[in-house]
């Protein structure tokens, strides 16, 4: 039964994630004074990609890469509470399980892209990993005060502790929240930090050799990834009390990110990393100091 439940759950999140991507395209189009594709367009894209025949495979790891990527993000999803709607397995893990599962996806993708023997792919991966030195640490530092203040490492408990509006971590720890927002932009790979894909520069980076169903996998990976990444942020900073609030929260966080994306140029890689070590790091440290002072 729970397996079926999990299927539906995954399907739901995948579809919602794809719709988010559609919204993003629509919003970007409107920002650019265009009409834009229908919101469900990414679903069609994914279906089309899965319907393609003979995608090129460069070897076992290249084949398994997208599969592992989806595995990682799916597994993460299972440990992530969608609001206080209890996830299947939230009680068996906490922040660190989620954080470490979260990298399984990129790792799988990196391994797959690596085997394609294309330098563009590897450059993309190198950038992606280097970017982690920027946003991942900021994200982590931004969330730490919340966990520390609530004396838990469980995301679910953090959600429960936040209860209603005035107790939101976003309000209690505004400095950390701002730092977290910076990090989310990088976490989602949106535009000033869109160095990994950079289609005009490195021909879509890691995906350069992926077509057909591999690309389809990567699309749904990205879709679930959006929910998981923004969801993590929302869970920690807004403590959504039910699944609806969860999706509303993630939607708005994602929307903000997309809007920034629509009007931004792209950093060079070292600029991007250094950017995070500047103001966001300062904010993150101040946030930590704040929790020390308030405790």
């Amino acid at each position: 039964m729970s397996i079926l439940y999990f299927f539906l759950y995954l399907l739901l999140v995948t579809i919602v994630g794809l719709l988010y991507m559609g919204v993003a395209r629509k919003v970007t189009a409107h920002v650019q004074n265009r009409y834009g594709p229908p919101i469900y367009q990414p679903i069609l894209d994914v279906l089309k990609l899965f319907g393609k025949k003979d995608a090129a495979s460069h070897g076992v790891m290249h084949t398994l890469g997208p599969v592992i990527a989806y595995t990682g993000i799916g597994a993460t999803l299972l440990f992530l509470p969608l609001g206080n709607h209890t996830p299947l397995l939230h009680f068996n893990g906490d922040l660190f399980v989620v954080l470490y599962l979260l990298v399984v996806g990129p790792l799988g993708m990196a391994l797959g892209a690596g085997e394609s023997a294309n330098s563009n792919a590897t450059i993309g991966i190198a950038r992606a990993l280097s970017m982690m030195l920027g946003y991942e640490i900021i994200f982590f530092m931004a969330t730490l005060p919340v966990f520390y203040a609530n004396h838990t490492a469980s995301i679910y408990k953090v959600i429960l502790a936040q209860g209603t509006f005035p107790k939101w971590a976003a309000i209690m720890y505004p400095i950390s929240f701002i730092a977290g927002l910076f990090a989310v932009q990088g976490l989602l790979g949106e535009k000033p930090f869109e160095l990994v894909i950079a289609p005009h520069e490195i021909a879509s980076g890691p995906m350069v050799e992926y077509g057909g169903k591999f690309l389809g996998f990567l699309q749904i990976w990205h879709a679930v990834g959006i929910i998981v990444e923004t969801g993590l942020f929302v869970d920690i900073f807004f403590g959504p009390q039910n699944i609806l609030w969860f999706f509303v929260g993630t939607f708005f966080v994602f929307l903000a990110s997309v809007l920034v994306n629509a009007v931004m140029p792209r950093f060079r890689i070292e600029q991007a990393v250094r950017f995070y070590w500047g103001i966001p790091l300062l904010f993150a440290i101040l946030g930590i100091l704040q929790v020390y002072l308030w405790r």
Partner: peptide
């Protein structure tokens, strides 16, 4: 177990659709 079962699931999805050729 979650990872392994998720991996199996992804593999199933992978095998249902399309085909590949060895480049």
């Amino acid at each position: 177990i979650v990872m392994v079962s998720m991996f199996v699931l992804s593999l199933i999805i992978y095998f249902i659709f399309g085909s590949t050729y060895k480049a």
